[in-house]
């Protein structure tokens, strides 16, 4: 069954029609990468999926329940949106850690004060998670004391601490230099091996090809090409994506 199902999503900012009837479904355990040029709407799609932007029309459902639906052209959101928020996690491009909280508090606070879970239980889980990510000794550090790569890894474990069914990544390595990019990609890869359901918006083509079960190429607010990574990258059909990949190769 699909964890996430987005259907015919339309989104405009003033005169700028960003998403033009786009659809996306993500099954349990699947890793989906979304690639495409800047301004193609991939980040907006993710922000719509996580309710940071409201859609103009379309359907968003999680676990078969509608979070947003459009009836007779009128889009309405469910009243209990916060219940849906517990289903997903989002990792931001620029981390957005809470600077006044330690690493451990960053992770623990939402499970405790939002999900009202037992504090000691959450603490044990979070410490185990940090340990697994090789961040155990940073538990009591503040975000400003960490490198960019460490900060992004902390923001990943912060999202994981909420035990989401699906994890979204919005260009998770774009704010990092190449050296630090590797450590973050390694974590995501590790999660993929553990069958974590993930949607990754990225500019890291080689990574997308290696880690994904499915790749989506977006341009101009629509899906241009979609499928198995080997097929999409190895046997690109559309002229637009060929051009994009050529430009990309030239740059790197």
């Amino acid at each position: 069954m699909s964890i996430l199902e987005m259907k015919n999503i339309e989104k405009s900012f003033a005169d700028n029609h960003v998403l033009k009837g786009i659809s996306l479904h993500v099954d349990k355990g699947e890793v989906v990468s979304i690639i495409g040029p800047s301004g193609s709407g991939k980040s907006t799609l993710l922000r719509c999926a996580t309710f940071l932007e409201t859609i103009d029309s379309g359907v968003i459902s999680y676990d078969g329940k509608n979070a947003a639906e459009t009836v007779n052209g009128k889009c309405t959101y469910a009243k209990n949106l916060n219940d849906f928020r517990h289903i997903f996690g989002l990792v931001f491009q620029n981390f957005n850690l809470f600077p006044h909280y330690t690493v451990l508090k960053n992770m623990m606070d939402a499970p405790v004060s939002v999900l009202h879970r037992d504090k000691e239980e959450v603490r044990a889980e979070c410490i185990a998670l940090l340990d697994k990510m090789g961040l155990a000794e940073k538990a009591n550090a503040y975000p400003c004391e960490l490198s960019g790569g460490q900060q992004q890894r902390v923001s990943i474990v912060r999202a994981l601490a909420m035990q989401p069914e699906i994890l979204f990544f919005d260009e998770p390595t774009s704010a990092l230099d190449p050296e630090l990019t590797g450590e973050v990609l390694k974590v995501i890869k590790q999660l993929a091996e553990e069958k974590m359901t993930m949607v990754i918006v990225t500019h890291e083509m080689a990574f997308a090809r290696a880690v994904s079960d499915r790749v989506i190429f977006m341009d101009g607010g629509v899906v241009v090409e979609e499928g198995d990574p080997e097929e999409v990258f190895g046997n690109t059909q559309s002229e637009r994506m060929k051009q994009f990949l050529r430009n990309y190769d030239r740059e790197t």
Binding site: L52, N96, L97, S113
Partner: peptide, 27 residues
């Protein structure tokens, strides 16, 4: 305050009041 602090709080499920008191106000 950077908008990212609000967005991170929202995605983690904090209510508006929790966000203001726990995340925004101390900063």
């Amino acid at each position: 305050m950077p908008v990212g602090q609000y967005e991170a709080s929202q995605v983690l499920g904090y209510s508006k009041i929790q966000t203001f008191i726990k995340i925004i106000l101390p900063q």
